[in-house]
Design a protein around this nucleic acid. Sequence first.
DNA 1: TTATGTTGTTTCACTGGTGAATCATGAGCC
DNA 2: GGCTCATGATTCACCAGTGAAACAACATAA
Lengths: 174, 174
Amino acid sequence: MTRLGERIRSMDEGIGRVNQIIPEMPATETRLCRLLLIVGDRLQRDLEAIVTPYRINHSEFTTLMILYSRPDGSSTPGELCELATQGATNMTRIANALLKRGLITRQSGATDRRQVIIRITAAGRRFAQKVLPPMFPRIAEAFSGFNVGERSELRRLLGKLAANLDDLDSGVTP
Amino acid sequence: MTRLGERIRSMDEGIGRVNQIIPEMPATETRLCRLLLIVGDRLQRDLEAIVTPYRINHSEFTTLMILYSRPDGSSTPGELCELATQGATNMTRIANALLKRGLITRQSGATDRRQVIIRITAAGRRFAQKVLPPMFPRIAEAFSGFNVGERSELRRLLGKLAANLDDLDSGVTP
DNA sequence: TTATGTTGTTTCACTGGTGAATCATGAGCC
DNA sequence: GGCTCATGATTCACCAGTGAAACAACATAA
């Protein structure tokens, strides 16, 4: 796999050349976008590589972790879609996969019978506690050399970007 | 679509609860990871939504832009794989799609006949110049409110993270 | 030069994710 | 009650991406 450093440098140069053809391009912002996407993509692949030996993929793992992190260990497909950024269609597939492995249960909702209640099982909790720890070293080392100020600054800047994207989507000028 | 703010808050709380069960979890770093992935995911979807009306998807668009940004407008599948972070298999499909639309040409390599030379056409350049400008407002507005120092600091921190990931993959302790 | 291994690309079979349509239930209204 | 519309979940058909194998061309070494 290519090193990110080279890819980022190549991307920076490419944007520079395009900017000479199209001067109205916001070059700095475009570089930041691409940088964020490149780093995020790599981070996701790295983390996914840690969980695949357990025969589970990233979206299934994320969904299970959301359930695991809930006080009552349960949710509905619709809610999980929003929390895991997945479409309803795919959440049905994810739930089928987790159900097949006995990591969750499915039951129809009591108050609203259209809803389905998904609940993590004891086996699901054990699985979560088994798969999480192998991820810790890599997550920690990804931010090695980041002091407290840098961590909180990165958090703040990404939060600010998220707020901007929220404003854009919910239409400041609808 | 849910707002990112709520999703991030929910994620923060969930990690806090898991951290109570598993105290050895690096909570701050895990939050940063998830935050980066959530924001990156949204940014990618937003940008993809801008290009889909032109009947092209994100990876095809990225590949075309890499070609557009090269001084000679050409490359090989293998090189494009690295620059666009795609597998060779998918690059074949991407090239087929771009070829079908007349945006690139394919010819076998002169020096090494195993290689294939992919070159952007005049139509491909026109297409690039047509599709890029609609992305500029959103890219610029994503970073509205970021002053010069914040932009360069975000760039520096993401670059540092990238360097750490490079070290991890190329095995500092192999 | 022919045997051996490596590299660049493509093909094939499969997994993962999505939009549109479907179905059942709930909610408001007359 | 019956009518209409909205909502939650699932099914179906399709698009996007991947690993393993195939294949052709290069490299090298006896």
